[in-house]
Design a protein around this nucleic acid. Structure first.
Length: 637
RNA sequence: GCCGAUGUAGCUCAGCUGGUAGAGCAACUGAUUCGUAAUCAGUAGGUCCCCGGUUCAAAUCCGGGCAUCGGCUCCA
């Protein structure tokens, strides 16, 4: 097989697959020393970096590129489907795409696949790979394809073909050996090119992602260009699991989710609560700096108010209710209502706007049991919520200010994020015109600020469209944190108004927004982000005093007094253990500084800090160490 | 809510086809007083997730719950 490369200067050359990147670059330009050579290899964008991939052949490079891997994995999913159907007669295939880190294939089968079945399937897959069947593309008329798959009992494939747009008259098939599959392609040249794959898990998944449909069995797997890359990926997966916030929450004694208390209800332990307090205090200050007013509403409000807002009609299944004295109350799932009542408490002038009401508002939502997940998806959580009531002409600048706020906050914690614009869902309230206006307002603000975003059709809140900011957890699952929602409906339902310059009543617009989202969720993502090794300003324990022997305790106690007086979060560890043991324990707790106290320190009146990364800072006078920690807190390091 | 797996000491886990529970770490006690990731010895610790059933006998088998994990759907 030959491989065509388009070099950065657009020149094209063809090489045999076994040629190395170094040789290819050399042939293109003898003196190419660039650390990155962005080229197209068989149409796929690849960094033909000379230094990094010198020894890799063009074939490996082509497969290792993002597009290449996606094609490889898609081909492996075909081989898996083929193997499953060989081993388990009567299994029906649905769809099997490549995904971010691998691939899956959905099957309908009378028996449940187990992890033990993976061995059989993988064995058959290896035989198919060894046979090195070429993937052959074939195009046939649509009716013939329906006939073909109907004849094989592949009802899902028939449904897929029938749902193609009417102008599609020909469909493509891919064959490898005597196996035929409906597929758009492309595929790798032959099954023999598959060098490394592994089946990972099996799970249920609804046909076409709709819970009204039948549930199929989905087998997940992954594949790479070579065994080493696969091994590296599996190691990475193991490493990621070590930073799972549920595991770290236990190891660092931050929180628990207790079965006796109830599913999805978090209990914060002292250190977890301290971390939470630090985040919340930072947030309050940042909000005050930005012209927000702090407010607070009640946990329960009369059910009639929820009827008025539309929550009762559209959100009831997720709400908790309580009845006292023949009066039904809704436990708030959102914080907006009290804020509406604050706005309505007096007549507002156009000069008063915008009004920005901020509340660390605790809400309860009855989430389905199957979706609960550590701190990331819970039933009681606290939003850093604000409602901004403004004039329509202020909308753009308010949205811009929020986007800046989010960007600033993410920068403080070192997060990268993705932005999505979510539009009108099926179950929604409000007029078409308002939805159009609100969606435009959000979109314009994004465009004006040159923010890259993707559109997420039909994913908005029931009362308005929204801009979502998403963070990734350790296992690359995306979680929504910040969100900005534009709402014309609630001001209408509550008949909010302000007196304009013209002396007439006007309707304000409302923005719902959160910056971190839910404090619980943000903490979960944060724990994973830092792998539990929080920056000094967020560390529940900033330093720990480790004595070498018992005779150093009195001096250490004096140092501890000084540290606490200076506001440093310091712990003591005076147990009768060797220093090495205490260092190890402190290290496992990921405490930023371990202060060793022995004869030298006692005599000189110093402390000997050892940083979490293993670095020894040498002997420091206590006040100098205090200054160091305070400086790091100041700079949010 | 749906599909599947799992639930044993504070933690991580072992306990084969039913015969009445075990290890390491942690805790406690004692010895040791030690300089940058685990000192030694001993002691104590369990409604085997809960409720019911089968059985002479259930951690083990069956049924029903609850919870957790991996997904799907949904969501901050």
């Amino acid at each position: 097989m030959d491989i065509k490369i388009i070099f950065p200067d657009k020149s094209e050359r063809t090489f045999p697959a076994g040629v190395t990147a170094g040789e290819a670059i050399g042939a293109w330009k003898k003196d190419a020393l660039a650390s990155s050579v962005a080229a197209k290899v068989n149409g796929m964008s690849v960094d033909l970096s000379f230094s990094m991939k010198e020894d890799a052949t063009l074939e490996t490079i082509a497969i290792s590129s993002k597009e290449g891997l996606s094609i490889l994995r898609h081909s492996i999913s075909h081989v898996m489907a083929q193997a499953v159907q060989d081993v388990f007669k009567g299994a029906k295939v649905a769809i099997g795409p490549s995904i971010e880190d691998g691939f899956y294939y959905d099957f309908e089968y009378s028996e449940t696949f187990t992890l033990d079945d993976f061995e059989k399937i993988e064995k058959r897959m290896k035989e198919i790979v060894a046979a090195d069947y070429p993937f052959v593309r074939e195009e046939i008329p649509r009716p013939k394809a329906v006939e073909l798959f109907a004849g094989r009992g592949e009802s899902y494939k028939v449904e897929l073909i029938n749902d193609l747009p009417e102008d599609v008259t020909v469909v493509s098939l891919y064959k490898d050996g005597d196996y035929i599959e409906l597929c758009r392609g492309p595929h790798i040249p032959s099954t023999g090119k598959i060098k490394a794959f592994k089946l990972l898990s099996v799970a249920g998944a609804y046909w076409r992602g709709d819970e009204r449909n039948k549930m199929l069995q989905r087998i997940y797997g992954t594949g790479f260009a070579d065994e080493q890359a696969l091994a590296d990926y599996l190691t990475l997966l193991e490493e990621s699991k070590k930073r799972d916030h549920r595991r770290l929450g236990k190891e660092l004694d931050l929180f628990q989710v207790n079965e006796e208390a109830g599913a999805g209800l978090v209990i914060f332990h002292p250190k977890g609560m301290l971390l939470r307090y630090l985040i919340e205090e930072w947030e309050r200050k940042e909000h005050l700096k930005r012209g927000y007013d702090m407010v607070m509403g009640p946990q329960i409000l009369k059910v009639d108010l929820w009827k008025k807002s539309g929550h009762f009609d559209h959100y009831r299944e997720n709400m908790y209710f309580t009845e006292v004295d023949e009066q039904t109350y809704g436990i708030k799932p959102m914080n907006c209502l009290a804020h509406m009542l604050i706005y309505k408490s007096k007549i507002r002038s156009y000069r008063d706007l915008p009004l920005r009401y901020f509340e660390l508002g605790t809400v309860h939502r009855h989430e389905k049991t199957g979706v609960l997940h550590g701190l990331l998806r819970v039933r009681q959580f606290t939003q850093d919520d604000a409602h901004i009531l403004c004039r329509p002409d202020q909308l753009n600048s308010e949205i811009r200010a929020i986007a800046d706020f989010v960007n600033y906050a993410m920068g403080i914690f070192g997060f990268e994020y993705e932005v999505e614009l979510s539009t009108r869902p099926e179950n929604s309230i409000g007029s078409d015109a308002d939805w159009e206006l609100a969606t435009q307002a959000l979109e314009n603000a994004l465009k004006d600020n040159n923010i890259n975003y993707e559109v997420n059709e039909g994913d908005g809140a029931f009362y308005g469209p929204k801009i979502d900011f998403k963070l990734k957890d350790a296992l690359k699952r995306k979680w929504q944190c910040a969100t900005i929602q534009c709402d014309f409906t609630l001001p209408e339902r509550f008949d909010l108004s302000y007196i304009g310059a013209d002396g007439e009543k006007h309707r304000p617009v409302m923005l719902h927004r959160v910056i971190l989202g839910a404090v619980e969720r943000f903490m979960g993502v944060l724990i994973e982000h830092y792998a539990g090794a929080f920056p000094v300003w967020l560390s529940p324990t900033q330093c720990i005093l480790l004595t070498v022997t018992d005779k150093h305790i009195p001096y250490a106690e004096k140092v501890q007094e000084q540290l606490l007086a200076a506001g440093i979060r310091s712990e003591t560890y005076f147990d009768n253990e060797k220093l090495g043991y205490k260092i190890r324990q402190a290290q496992l707790q990921k405490i930023p500084y371990m202060l060793v106290i022995g004869d030298k320190e006692m005599d000189a009146g110093t402390v000997a800090p050892r940083a979490r990364d293993g670095q020894n800072l040498g002997a420091l006078p206590v006040d100098q160490f205090i200054a160091l920690v305070q400086d790091m807190c100041e700079k949010k390091k």
